[in-house]
């Protein structure tokens, strides 16, 4: 049973989040360990297992990047290792520029504005890439799947940058 079947929803990148979450809650109402708190240890153990599997499936389908990866892997696309080198030099150059931009935020005369600027640049580039990946996933042929996979890897770079932005924000506003 794949994750889409588990939640009884259509297998597509465009998931109806409302529908997904309503199925998820129905399933958890059935298997959550709280429903077995007065049952035998064995039933409790199975409940924890099932509930964890359902949580994992839900997180995978809820998060767009994880969902994309799941769909592509299901289609048999081989995900390159994270350490695998990237061929697209212009993308790598852009990443370095963005990192420098982020580095410079704390030296800016207006830190708030500089941070907001970085965030808006990142979010624009991210949504363009996401849109592209979405189209490629829905085309669903050998070439488009590989292209989607490539864009997914790029989006993961952006995800890491976003984590850096959060860290920076925390460090700027902490004592």
């Amino acid at each position: 049973m794949n994750y889409f079947q588990l939640f009884n929803i259509e297998a597509s990148f465009d998931v109806d989040i409302q529908e997904l979450s309503s199925s998820y809650q129905t399933l958890q109402k059935t298997v959550h360990p709280d429903k077995f708190a007065h049952s035998s240890e064995q039933e409790q153990r199975i409940a924890v297992q099932k509930s964890a599997q359902i949580n994992d499936a839900y997180q995978t389908l809820k998060n767009p990047l994880q969902r994309a990866e799941y769909i592509l892997v299901q289609r048999g696309v081989e995900m390159p290792n994270e350490q695998h080198s990237f061929q697209d030099t212009s993308f790598l150059m852009r990443q370095m520029e963005l990192r420098e931009m982020l580095e410079d935020v704390k030296f800016s005369s207006n830190v708030d504005a500089a941070l907001a600027e970085v965030q808006s640049v990142l979010s624009n580039e991210c949504s363009q890439l996401s849109q592209l990946m979405r189209t490629q996933i829905s085309e669903n042929n050998a070439a488009s799947n590989l292209a989607a996979c490539d864009n997914l890897r790029k989006l993961k770079f952006y995800q890491k940058l976003n984590v850096e932005v959060d860290r920076l924000e925390d460090s700027l506003f902490d004592d």
């Binding site: 399933l27 298997v31 064995q42 099932k50």
Partner: peptide
Amino acid sequence: LNDSTAVFAERRMDSSISQALAGQA
């Protein structure tokens, strides 16, 4: 007893999962 019911407990859980979704449908 636990050993003898291990498979039963699994089956029950799986069956209640499909029932829950069917109910929702």
